[in-house]
Protein backbone atom coordinates (compact mmCIF):
# COMPACT_ATOMS: atom_id res chain seq x y z
CA UNK A 1 0.00 0.00 0.00
CA UNK A 2 2.74 2.44 0.93
CA UNK A 3 4.46 1.58 -2.34
CA UNK A 4 1.41 2.71 -4.30
CA UNK A 5 1.09 5.87 -2.21
CA UNK A 6 4.77 6.71 -2.80
CA UNK A 7 4.43 6.14 -6.54
CA UNK A 8 1.21 8.15 -6.76
CA UNK A 9 2.76 11.04 -4.86
CA UNK A 10 5.69 11.21 -7.28
CA UNK A 11 3.44 10.91 -10.34
CA UNK A 12 1.10 13.64 -9.14
CA UNK A 13 4.04 15.92 -8.33
CA UNK A 14 5.22 15.50 -11.90
CA UNK A 15 1.88 15.67 -13.72
CA UNK A 16 -0.53 17.98 -11.87
CA UNK A 17 -0.96 21.46 -13.38
CA UNK A 18 1.46 23.94 -11.90
CA UNK A 19 3.83 21.26 -10.60
CA UNK A 20 7.59 21.51 -10.44
CA UNK A 21 8.20 20.22 -13.96
CA UNK A 22 6.57 23.32 -15.40
CA UNK A 23 4.80 22.72 -18.69
CA UNK A 24 1.84 20.86 -17.19
CA UNK A 25 -0.55 23.83 -17.49
CA UNK A 26 -0.29 23.64 -21.28
CA UNK A 27 -3.07 21.07 -21.94
CA UNK A 28 -5.51 23.18 -19.97
CA UNK A 29 -4.56 26.43 -21.72
CA UNK A 30 -4.69 24.61 -25.05
CA UNK A 31 -8.22 23.43 -24.26
CA UNK A 32 -9.35 26.98 -23.44
CA UNK A 33 -7.57 28.38 -26.50
CA UNK A 34 -9.50 26.04 -28.83
CA UNK A 35 -12.80 27.04 -27.19
CA UNK A 36 -11.85 30.70 -27.53
CA UNK A 37 -10.78 30.49 -31.18
CA UNK A 38 -13.81 28.55 -32.37
CA UNK A 39 -16.33 31.46 -32.25
CA UNK A 40 -13.83 33.64 -34.14
CA UNK A 41 -13.57 31.00 -36.85
CA UNK A 42 -17.29 30.34 -37.43
CA UNK A 43 -18.57 33.85 -36.75
CA UNK A 44 -21.06 35.25 -34.21
CA UNK A 45 -24.01 33.03 -35.14
CA UNK A 46 -25.51 32.07 -31.78
CA UNK A 47 -27.69 29.28 -33.17
CA UNK A 48 -24.80 27.63 -35.02
CA UNK A 49 -22.46 28.02 -32.03
CA UNK A 50 -25.04 26.59 -29.66
CA UNK A 51 -25.64 23.60 -31.88
CA UNK A 52 -21.95 22.75 -32.46
CA UNK A 53 -20.27 24.09 -29.30
CA UNK A 54 -20.62 20.88 -27.28
CA UNK A 55 -18.87 18.88 -29.98
CA UNK A 56 -16.04 21.41 -30.11
CA UNK A 57 -15.51 21.05 -26.35
CA UNK A 58 -15.19 17.30 -26.87
CA UNK A 59 -12.63 17.69 -29.64
CA UNK A 60 -10.69 20.20 -27.55
CA UNK A 61 -10.69 17.79 -24.59
CA UNK A 62 -9.39 14.98 -26.79
CA UNK A 63 -6.58 17.16 -28.17
CA UNK A 64 -5.67 18.42 -24.70
CA UNK A 65 -5.40 14.83 -23.49
CA UNK A 66 -2.87 14.07 -26.24
CA UNK A 67 -0.46 16.87 -25.31
CA UNK A 68 1.27 15.30 -22.27
CA UNK A 69 1.68 11.83 -23.79
CA UNK A 70 5.38 12.05 -24.73
CA UNK A 71 6.41 12.77 -21.16
CA UNK A 72 4.00 10.32 -19.54
CA UNK A 73 6.22 7.21 -19.53
CA UNK A 74 9.19 7.66 -21.87
CA UNK A 75 11.38 9.78 -19.53
CA UNK A 76 11.08 7.17 -16.75
CA UNK A 77 12.04 4.36 -19.11
CA UNK A 78 15.04 6.30 -20.46
CA UNK A 79 16.38 7.30 -17.05
CA UNK A 80 16.17 3.77 -15.69
CA UNK A 81 13.27 4.11 -13.26
CA UNK A 82 11.41 1.13 -14.71
CA UNK A 83 14.53 -1.06 -14.44
CA UNK A 84 14.95 -0.10 -10.79
CA UNK A 85 11.27 -0.80 -10.07
CA UNK A 86 11.58 -4.19 -11.77
CA UNK A 87 14.56 -5.08 -9.55
CA UNK A 88 12.47 -4.20 -6.50
CA UNK A 89 9.75 -6.55 -7.70
CA UNK A 90 7.21 -3.79 -8.45
CA UNK A 91 5.25 -4.94 -11.49
CA UNK A 92 5.02 -2.70 -14.55
CA UNK A 93 1.24 -3.16 -14.39
CA UNK A 94 1.11 -1.50 -10.95
CA UNK A 95 3.27 1.41 -12.13
CA UNK A 96 1.11 1.92 -15.24
CA UNK A 97 -2.14 1.72 -13.23
CA UNK A 98 -0.89 4.36 -10.80
CA UNK A 99 0.35 6.50 -13.69
CA UNK A 100 -3.07 6.18 -15.35
CA UNK A 101 -4.78 7.47 -12.23
CA UNK A 102 -2.32 10.36 -11.93
CA UNK A 103 -2.67 11.21 -15.63
CA UNK A 104 -6.47 11.30 -15.37
CA UNK A 105 -6.36 13.38 -12.17
CA UNK A 106 -4.02 15.83 -13.87
CA UNK A 107 -6.35 16.61 -16.78
CA UNK A 108 -9.84 15.10 -16.31
CA UNK A 109 -11.17 17.21 -13.41
CA UNK A 110 -9.43 20.32 -14.72
CA UNK A 111 -10.91 19.91 -18.20
CA UNK A 112 -14.36 19.61 -16.60
CA UNK A 113 -13.72 22.81 -14.63
CA UNK A 114 -12.43 24.57 -17.74
CA UNK A 115 -15.53 23.41 -19.62
CA UNK A 116 -17.51 25.99 -17.61
CA UNK A 117 -15.77 29.07 -19.09
CA UNK A 118 -15.44 27.21 -22.40
CA UNK A 119 -19.21 26.68 -22.55
CA UNK A 120 -19.71 30.43 -22.19
CA UNK A 121 -17.18 31.08 -24.97
CA UNK A 122 -18.89 28.75 -27.45
CA UNK A 123 -22.34 29.78 -26.23
CA UNK A 124 -24.03 26.52 -25.28
CA UNK A 125 -27.00 26.43 -22.91
CA UNK A 126 -27.11 24.91 -19.43
CA UNK A 127 -28.81 21.67 -20.40
CA UNK A 128 -26.16 20.99 -23.05
CA UNK A 129 -23.41 21.89 -20.60
CA UNK A 130 -24.86 19.39 -18.17
CA UNK A 131 -24.68 16.63 -20.81
CA UNK A 132 -21.16 17.70 -21.81
CA UNK A 133 -19.94 17.52 -18.22
CA UNK A 134 -21.49 14.09 -17.62
CA UNK A 135 -20.03 12.93 -20.92
CA UNK A 136 -16.56 14.20 -19.99
CA UNK A 137 -16.83 12.52 -16.60
CA UNK A 138 -17.62 9.24 -18.33
CA UNK A 139 -15.22 9.71 -21.24
CA UNK A 140 -12.02 11.27 -19.89
CA UNK A 141 -10.91 8.11 -17.99
CA UNK A 142 -11.13 6.29 -21.33
CA UNK A 143 -9.12 9.04 -23.03
CA UNK A 144 -6.50 8.76 -20.29
CA UNK A 145 -6.37 4.97 -20.74
CA UNK A 146 -5.93 5.22 -24.52
CA UNK A 147 -3.23 7.83 -23.90
CA UNK A 148 -1.28 5.62 -21.52
CA UNK A 149 -1.52 2.58 -23.81
CA UNK A 150 -0.19 4.60 -26.75
CA UNK A 151 2.51 6.21 -24.58
CA UNK A 152 3.74 2.77 -23.50
CA UNK A 153 3.72 1.37 -27.04
CA UNK A 154 5.75 4.31 -28.40
CA UNK A 155 8.15 4.35 -25.45
CA UNK A 156 11.28 3.32 -27.33
CA UNK A 157 10.73 5.56 -30.33
CA UNK A 158 12.62 8.82 -30.70
CA UNK A 159 10.37 11.82 -31.34
CA UNK A 160 7.29 9.88 -30.28
CA UNK A 161 5.09 12.94 -29.56
CA UNK A 162 3.59 13.38 -33.02
CA UNK A 163 3.27 9.65 -33.59
CA UNK A 164 1.39 9.08 -30.33
CA UNK A 165 -0.99 11.89 -31.22
CA UNK A 166 -1.77 10.28 -34.55
CA UNK A 167 -2.24 6.85 -32.97
CA UNK A 168 -4.61 8.11 -30.28
CA UNK A 169 -7.06 9.79 -32.64
CA UNK A 170 -8.55 6.69 -34.35
CA UNK A 171 -8.79 4.85 -31.02
CA UNK A 172 -10.64 7.75 -29.46
CA UNK A 173 -13.30 7.84 -32.19
CA UNK A 174 -15.75 5.50 -30.36
CA UNK A 175 -15.56 7.65 -27.22
CA UNK A 176 -16.14 10.75 -29.30
CA UNK A 177 -19.07 9.23 -31.21
CA UNK A 178 -20.98 8.21 -28.09
CA UNK A 179 -19.78 11.04 -25.85
CA UNK A 180 -20.46 13.87 -28.27
CA UNK A 181 -23.36 11.92 -29.79
CA UNK A 182 -25.21 12.04 -26.46
CA UNK A 183 -25.47 15.80 -27.08
CA UNK A 184 -27.70 15.52 -30.14
CA UNK A 185 -29.83 12.64 -28.88
CA UNK A 186 -29.91 14.14 -25.40
CA UNK A 187 -30.24 10.54 -24.28
CA UNK A 188 -28.55 8.64 -21.53
CA UNK A 189 -27.77 5.74 -23.85
CA UNK A 190 -24.77 7.59 -25.30
CA UNK A 191 -23.44 8.46 -21.85
CA UNK A 192 -23.83 4.88 -20.65
CA UNK A 193 -21.96 3.57 -23.69
CA UNK A 194 -19.21 6.15 -23.19
CA UNK A 195 -18.85 5.00 -19.60
CA UNK A 196 -18.78 1.36 -20.66
CA UNK A 197 -16.04 1.96 -23.24
CA UNK A 198 -14.08 3.94 -20.65
CA UNK A 199 -14.33 1.15 -18.09
CA UNK A 200 -13.15 -1.47 -20.56
CA UNK A 201 -10.20 0.73 -21.61
CA UNK A 202 -9.23 1.51 -18.01
CA UNK A 203 -9.32 -2.20 -17.13
CA UNK A 204 -7.16 -3.07 -20.14
CA UNK A 205 -4.61 -0.24 -19.95
CA UNK A 206 -2.34 -1.47 -17.11
CA UNK A 207 -1.87 -4.90 -18.72
CA UNK A 208 -1.33 -3.55 -22.24
CA UNK A 209 1.01 -0.87 -20.92
CA UNK A 210 3.00 -3.24 -18.71
CA UNK A 211 3.50 -5.71 -21.53
CA UNK A 212 4.57 -2.94 -23.92
CA UNK A 213 7.17 -1.60 -21.48
CA UNK A 214 8.62 -5.07 -20.87
CA UNK A 215 8.78 -5.66 -24.62
CA UNK A 216 10.64 -2.37 -25.11
CA UNK A 217 13.53 -3.72 -22.98
CA UNK A 218 14.24 -6.46 -25.50
CA UNK A 219 14.90 -4.08 -28.38
Amino acid sequence: MSTIATLLKRDLAALLPGSAKGNSLLPLLFFLAVAMLYPFAVGPDAALLGATGGGVIWVAALLAAILPLDRLLAPDVESGFFDQWALRGIAEEVIVAVRLLAHWLSFGPFIMLAALPASALVGIDNATLHTVLLGLLAGTPGLAAIGIIIASVTVGIKGNAALSGLLVIPLAVPLLIFGAGSLSSGGEGGLALTGAISLALVAMAPFAGGAAIRASRES
Binding site: A14, A20, E78, S79, G80, F81, D83, L87, R88, G89
Partner: peptide, 16 residues
Protein backbone atom coordinates in the same frame (compact mmCIF):
# COMPACT_ATOMS: atom_id res chain seq x y z
CA UNK B 1 18.24 -12.65 -2.21
CA UNK B 2 17.29 -9.34 -3.79
CA UNK B 3 19.41 -7.62 -6.40
CA UNK B 4 20.48 -4.01 -6.78
CA UNK B 5 21.59 -2.56 -10.10
CA UNK B 6 23.95 0.32 -10.80
CA UNK B 7 24.28 1.15 -14.47
CA UNK B 8 24.54 4.18 -16.73
CA UNK B 9 20.99 5.34 -15.93
CA UNK B 10 20.74 7.45 -12.84
CA UNK B 11 17.04 6.84 -12.07
CA UNK B 12 16.76 10.07 -10.09
CA UNK B 13 14.41 12.96 -10.87
CA UNK B 14 16.53 15.57 -12.66
CA UNK B 15 14.42 18.57 -11.68
CA UNK B 16 14.35 17.78 -7.95
Amino acid sequence: GSMALLDQSLALDEHL
